[in-house]
Design a binder for these strands. Structure first.
Length: 287
DNA sequence: GTGACCACCTGGCCGC
DNA sequence: TGCGGCCAGGTGGTCA
């Protein structure tokens, strides 16, 4: 039995992207790998996909967590032949608590381990999902097969990105948010990548030069690598002295910087909407 | 194949 | 103070 309540926050951001999910993975890996599920409570059934809730519970009971991986924004909990693909969407987060801790309002799934601890999935907006699949199907028959390469993958090059976007007339910002193009980028980091690449977020995706596609890939790697090192971004934190908080918010150059001076030209950062997404950029530096 | 729009969901914010 | 309406966001589905 644990003596303290651990609160796991995905980089403490309210919008987990690849770095925040990686922070959660690393933290959970040290705390729950090797534990065996005794029971599961599902309080909000729509989170479960790929199986009935009854199957989800019955198949996982007695299973031991062997490892936790990640692809893009998906957490991959591997229990031998079974795997849970967990997507945190907007506000999903995991807590590890003692058995006797009362259930909080937004805790929708509780995994009870045989050692008396619990893993609790908390999601204010109920957008998150958990797919129960066969481990052998992870890369052949699961939501992950639709994902594009992560920026860290050597196969993701400027040439590859150009081939994917050559017919896409949508805004480059929208294209980069498409996880089938590049896996792991979300609204925050796309703004940063486009700023470093000096690209107008509304620029048509198929109009970039090869050098600009290469710059996007290079800067995506740079931004995500730095963000992973710093544990992600905390834009809205939660009260917890034990929380795992990110520090990348101190490195943000444009996101959430509306009206603040651009670090290059000192002109105020502008906020617009690109296909409904709040978007921050410098109208002077990004063309 | 592509783009636009909508639904999902709830807390926070704003105006009345 | 309380109420209603709007906004934020990632993804999947539908339709043109």
């Amino acid at each position: 039995m644990m003596n303290q309540e651990f609160i796991i926050i995905p980089g403490a951001s309210n919008m987990p992207e690849l770095p925040e999910v990686e922070t959660v993975r690393r933290t959970l890996e040290t705390l729950i790998v090797g534990k065996t599920i005794r029971d599961i409570d599902v309080f909000y059934e729509r989170i479960i996909r790929g199986s009935t809730v009854t199957d989800f519970i019955s198949k996982l009971e007695g299973q031991t967590l062997s490892s936790i991986d990640r692809y893009g924004k998906y957490l991959i909990f591997i229990f031998g032949e079974l795997t849970i693909l967990s997507h945190l969407r907007m506000e999903g987060k995991y807590f590890i608590k003692n058995l006797d801790e009362p259930k909080e309002k937004h805790e929708h799934i509780i995994f009870y381990f045989t050692d008396g601890s619990t893993l609790r999935y908390h999601d204010t907006r109920k957008f998150g999902t958990m797919d129960l699949i066969l481990t052998k199907d992870i890369f052949t028959n699961s939501p992950i097969i639709k994902q594009g390469y992560e920026p860290f993958n050597e196969k993701l090059t400027g040439t590859h990105l150009r081939s994917l976007l050559k017919n896409r007339k949508t805004a480059i910002k929208s294209a980069l948010l498409d996880q089938t193009v590049m896996s792991g980028l979300g609204n925050i980091y796309v703004d940063e990548v486009l700023f470093l690449s000096k690209l107008d977020p509304e620029r048509q995706a198929n109009t970039l030069t090869l050098k600009q596609y290469k710059d996007v890939v290079t800067n995506a790697k740079k931004v995500l690598t730095k963000a992973v090192e710093l544990g992600g971004t905390t834009i809205r934190s939660y009260t917890s002295s034990l929380g795992v908080t990110g520090r990348f918010q101190n490195e943000l150059l444009v996101h959430m910087k509306e009206k603040e001076p651009c670090i290059i030209c000192l002109k105020p950062i502008t906020k617009i909407k690109v296909n409904g997404r709040g978007t921050y950029y410098c109208t002077n530096c990004q063309k």
